[in-house]
Write a protein that binds this DNA or RNA. Structure first.
Lengths: 356, 356
DNA sequence: CATCAAATTGGTAGCGCTGCCAAAAAATCC
DNA sequence: GGATTTTTTGGCAGCGCTACCAATTTGATG
């Protein structure tokens, strides 16, 4: 399937075989149909085609049909790159997220992408691995695409990132955190409040010797915020945190199991453990199952996130359900609507399960 | 928080308040620095700036410094839209995936995005909800961005999608399936082989009354392929499938639990159950825990995917581990390297856990 | 120091589209 | 029927960059 069209006039019509293409793919060069070709085929001007295709401006029904027929016949696919360059404002939305392993971010993407697709926006993403330096580099790379908006996790960004985002002129959405000052729009909930309520709940239930199992807090600053206000609330309630186990890696079921094992090895008489999230809590639950530790009578377990999996456990997990999908949806809606700067608190829900 | 920086010289330093901007964002208009401005500021030609920035072609060290200084000073961010339009071939890779809830796809994205970021490619994605019609629409939308490659799940596409992809001239990667004919490049493993080996394993272990719990097979065709070859192998082994429970929704822990409950209500004397994947299997495991059904003596459980969670269970889940992240990585590498058409079989690993 | 090759540099024509404007066609009015 | 309004249309200048080519500078050589 050799590209026969659009060869510059001064090229020989037939390319000598001796030139030797490396492999089949060389034939797959962009055989692009352009708007100008559609216009010619339909016997109308370029701008008319453009107007019809975008359904913008006026044109007669007859013209519309002729253009659509030509589009169909030639298999024309508009070039959004060119379109975006020529017009003001793109329909790209950039996501700069810390991780794809932590289910939180796929959930946010899911919520957002549904809304964006409906509105003919396109989602672009990259993954920072919770590294602020990488975030800066990736944010710069994203801005090069001149997106309509950039979505990031939380408020903790390098000075360079902030400066760049401010200067870019595009909308900036900071998600999943409300404890700080937003650059532009923030959508999420308060992690500090979540930590506080978790602690208050455990205290109210009568637990006094409470421990914590978490993953790397320096990287996941939102987990860090939950933890610190959890500790403050415990201390204020007269039952300060007894022990903690912080694992180096990412949050995972295995780390939760390992973490609880280590914590209990050091501190035997705990009556409750707060986990940095549900993955970790599930690991702790598994550890208890394996070791025959009765839940919650011997040891209570409390998580964070409210994953579906928690509901299906033999004893539903006590945890806090966060509106992850909704965060993505609302954020996307605000972008589409070009809403003014604001902070949207979606709240969270404490799930009074059977493990605490 | 008004953006005070980077106002064009000809603008008044102070904008009179009387003009009455609707909200703060009006200040955030695109105050874009262009390559031409950098060139002027650095006292060199446009093409020189372009060459320095792309580190392509030749230029002196002195020029390089002058250009970089100007870039720094002006806070120039190259416009990739314009760059892509002007050059041949983009550095966009489009992902058209069925779902973000099924961990498989975030895993693939994760593997791919790491490789793509290293090579300064950008990932774009959209979610089809396992709907081939939506896949076609979204694929068209993606092609409008003239990506270097489009990555899709599996081989089942509408005629329109196939035609469009063929005509587009961009690379097409079909992932996570090898049972069919690839359009261009395929990376993954055989779902039929996975179903076959799962069945063979259960037979070898001596299970004879085997059931199945799965989610919607019409939509997830790869799960369908596993199931059908699973059944064939059982039948060939003289122990055809005894019962099945197919749930309408997506795969989830809750559906797995519910599915097993329903299956056992109908068919009491099963000795093993094959689940459409690990989420479902975990749900089944929870059901057994809750009901006091001994695993694997009373009932064996076998999953698919080899999620980390399976390893942390009190009894490690017997399952098949699939190379999801690697699929993404390899696929991305093939795109970056502009590899010839091929099918890459990454295989899978049967995990002989403690539940079967 | 002239001569030639190599390294550097700037000018400029597009890439494919949109947005503006003016021209042409159709519809409406007196 | 002519004047005027309204609708429909085409032409063309960019959007910001890259690729190509020609011009210039630098370095090497005898």
């Amino acid at each position: 399937m050799v590209a026969a069209r659009r060869l510059p006039a001064e090229m020989p019509a037939a390319i000598p075989k001796e030139l030797g293409f490396k492999h089949t793919m060389d034939f797959k060069q962009q055989v692009t149909v352009t708007l100008a070709e559609v216009a010619e085929a339909a016997g109308v001007g370029e701008s008319t085609v453009s107007r019809v295709l975008r359904n913008h401006g006026s044109f007669s029904g007859k013209t519309r049909e002729r253009v659509m027929a030509a589009v169909e016949r030639l298999g024309y696919v508009p070039n959004r790159i060119a379109g975006t360059l020529a017009s003001t404002g793109s329909r790209l939305v950039a996501f700069v997220i810390p991780s794809l392993s932590n289910i939180v971010f796929p959930d946010v993407l899911r919520g957002a992408s549904a809304v964006l697709e409906e509105n003919r926006y396109q989602a672009v993403f990259s993954v920072t691995d919770y590294d602020p330096g990488k975030e800066e580099a990736l944010a710069a790379a994203m801005l090069a695409w001149r997106p309509a908006a950039v979505m990031l996790a939380g408020y903790e960004h390098t000075e360079g990132t902030v400066k760049m985002l401010r200067a870019s002129g595009c909308r900036v959405l900071e998600l999943l955190d409300l404890d700080g000052d937003a650059l532009d729009i923030a959508v999420g909930f308060s992690n500090r409040a979540a930590g506080r309520e978790s602690a208050a709940f455990l205290l109210k239930r009568g637990y006094r010797r409470i421990g914590y199992v978490g993953h790397d807090l320096n990287r996941d600053t939102r987990a860090g915020k939950r933890f610190s206000s959890f500790c403050e609330t415990l201390a204020a309630g007269g039952a300060p945190l007894v022990a903690r186990e912080i694992l180096a890696g990412a949050s995972s079921v295995e780390n939760g199991r390992l973490g609880l094992e280590r914590l209990l090895a050091r501190t035997r008489d705990l009556d409750a453990v707060y986990f940095s999230n549900d993955d970790m809590a599930l690991g702790g639950y598994f550890h208890c199952l394996a070791e025959g530790i009765a839940i919650p009578s011997r040891l209570a377990i409390f998580g964070y996130n409210g994953l579906d999996i928690g509901r299906a456990m033999p004893q539903p997990l006590s945890t806090i359900r966060t509106p992850r999908v909704a965060t993505g949806q609302i954020a996307a809606q605000l972008v589409v609507a070009d809403a003014p700067p604001q902070a949207v608190d979606l709240g969270f829900e404490l799930i009074d399960g059977a493990t605490a």
